[in-house]
Nucleic acid binder design. Structure first.
Lengths: 205, 205
DNA sequence: TGTACATCAGTGAACGCGCGTTCACTGATGTAC
DNA sequence: TGTACATCAGTGAACGCGCGTTCACTGATGTAC
């Protein structure tokens, strides 16, 4: 490709415009949230006219779906990392999940439909992507739980990490205390439950 | 008030325009999601000119905050309902929380900042409202747990019901099975935890 | 090596739209006398 | 009971804006001969 040979950026043919658009879109997304995504602004950042985007995406919506796809793939990679101890694998998966959301807060929200209009077909495309993420979580759980409990246990764990991710992203956790430590302790409760402490089973304080 | 005496709706002075605007805004919100809120459309629905709204709200953002306030108050009422059995109070509070979100999905999302631009001051106003909801949850927990565990346990429970609410709202739970039953069983896990089942402690299947 | 040509990536101008907000106003209300 | 008046709720027109998308185009590219 010409673009790989020449660094001159002011040439007529860009050479990798699709990726350049996605990259700019992603920066814009993280700067201003899902609702700030705009085709004209994306093109502006790449230094290209707005209509040129239509050679690669059929609409602004399609760009957003492209970002969500990127996000899903990256998240899958993060969750696939091998745990260092088999025993704490679940907690580590949960932490990896939340770490991804914290590193890409607006992308994470986009992946859950924020910014798509209620009528857009992008919204349903994104829902299917989410299912992939869920399947990964369930696969992790399958190594530890009987199959009958899997659906409910998976939903339980997904709800927990999803909710916690959003609360952390929203700045809703109290200031005091290290955030990583707080996350670790909340996930720990996922294993133990909230039941009134049984004798001899002291919870860490 | 004149409006309470007369039913003629085509009079120059509306009489209760502020509430009428909020009501119309709320309907619009639930129809099209937080991003569909528009001052002109709200006024249109009430049958009033757009600028008239400025007698009651300083901006569109202020209307959205007004809706979020309504939502927070209503949610607080839902959570304050006395539990029928002391033992299952926590689960019932969780179910009430999720029931509110399901009944007012777009309002619930609005309460968590969706639809506010990243730079708007409405966003921070809404965050303070959320803290109120959290304090109620913690107050519920305080009746069952030692104070030292309260912050983490509260965050655990809040994360779980928040995440589950959103997943249900988003239509992300599997079709098969009654949704209420699924919610009940997930909340049940909050008490028991995911730990590998201990002998004699059979989980319902 | 040179030239004609098909391909198609990127352009500039324009369309139509609806938005939030401001402004000077008009019309209804209730009160003071 | 009647009239002048202050108040202020609601209006119509306009401003300026930026958006997503379409269109006919232009300019660079690489290939076939």
């Amino acid at each position: 490709l010409r673009s790989l040979r020449s660094k001159k950026s002011d040439q007529y043919h860009h050479g990798d415009l699709r990726n350049a658009l996605l990259t700019a879109a992603r920066e814009l997304l993280e700067e201003g949230g899902p609702s700030s995504l705009g085709l004209r602004e994306i093109a502006r950042r790449v230094g290209v006219s707005a209509p040129s985007a239509y050679h690669y995406f059929s609409s602004l919506d399609a760009i957003a779906v492209g970002l969500a796809e990127q996000g899903t793939n990256e998240m899958a990679e993060c969750l696939a990392v091998e745990a260092s101890h088999k025993a704490s694998q679940l907690a580590q998966t949960g932490e990896a999940y939340i770490a991804f959301a914290r590193a890409n807060p607006a992308l994470y929200r986009l992946m859950f439909g924020e910014g798509f209009s209620a009528t857009s077909k992008g919204g349903v495309a994104v829902r299917d992507l989410r299912q992939m993420a869920f399947d990964i979580i369930k696969a992790r759980l399958a190594e530890r739980l009987p199959e009958g409990d899997l659906a409910i246990a998976g939903l339980f764990l997904w709800s927990l990490v999803h909710g916690l991710s959003l609360l952390v992203i929203d700045g809703q956790i109290e200031k005091k205390g290290d955030t990583d430590e707080v996350i670790r302790r909340v996930l720990e409760l996922a294993g133990n439950g909230l039941a009134v402490p049984r004798m001899g089973a002291r919870r860490r304080v």
